[in-house]
Amino acid sequence: MKAPRPDYSVDAGQSPGTWLLRGVMRLESPEAYARAFEPIVASLTKLPAISLDLSQVVFLNSSGIRALADVLLLAREKRCQVTLFGSAAVPWQKKLASSLTALFPEFVMRVDR
């Protein structure tokens, strides 16, 4: 039997260090997120700046927010600048922008696209 198709995707954008995340990200464990975010983590250790476009992520559960925070903590450690893009039309993304501003003032999350 074939494994079900994932509800989400993590794709590299056209420019180096740009990432486009899409779909429903309600993964079951930190390990599952570590696998999903592996290419993003690899890129932030090699580049001075990366961007994550979350605007097409319909849902992200609290394990995902934890995993995203872990990415930002690592970026801070590696001195990699991170810009996040979100959509103001998606409630959790507006909330995330507010949380991130409080916790990671050095990173920008734009929720206008």
Binding site: V58, F59, P91, W92
Partner: peptide, 15 residues
């Protein structure tokens, strides 16, 4: 908006 918020909260409880 209500769908997104209710589903987000309920999902946390079910998980």
């Amino acid at each position: 908006t209500a769908r997104s918020v209710l589903s987000t909260v309920m999902n946390e409880l079910v998980e």
